[in-house]
Amino acid sequence: MREIRFTLNGREVSTSAHPMARLIDVLRDEFRMTGVKEGCGEGECGACSILKDGRIVNSCILAVGMIEGAVLETPEGIAATDRGRAINAGYAEAGAVQCGFCMTGMAVATEALLRQNPAPDEHQIRTAISGNLCRCTGYAMIVDGIKRAAIKGSGLW
């Protein structure tokens, strides 16, 4: 079978998975990017968020055949950057994290937002994470975490 090639966190990789296989399964099972979480498998919760060519997508509703040549960034990839560390520090300071299952997806949404808008206001933040469900926090402390991340990482985006 033809290999599907793409860039994963800066590395050129390929997979021989069936083109119809869900991207989330390939990322998790084959590449062990387990920061990509499955919360619903139907494109509703955002726990499986990744960046595809810089845009946030739900990897549970993408077939791996659709990512030939794409540039993918997972939570692991983002966390390893200075910007990822700023996000992490902002969340920690705000006390944003509870059970954590939504948090890698939130971090991806945060990265996507701050790339477009390094100094977002409350409403812009809430809109940017509205595709990411969190059942624990009621969101306000995540919003606060994102504001802090923007300040801590000011100049990085």
Binding site: M33, G35, V36, K37, P75, Y91, A96, C99, G100, M103
Partner: peptide
């Protein structure tokens, strides 16, 4: 700072 914050945000924490 919560002890579980970092691992959960970075994806290191395993469920």
């Amino acid at each position: 700072q919560r002890v579980d914050s970092h691992g959960k945000t970075s994806g290191e924490t395993r469920y």
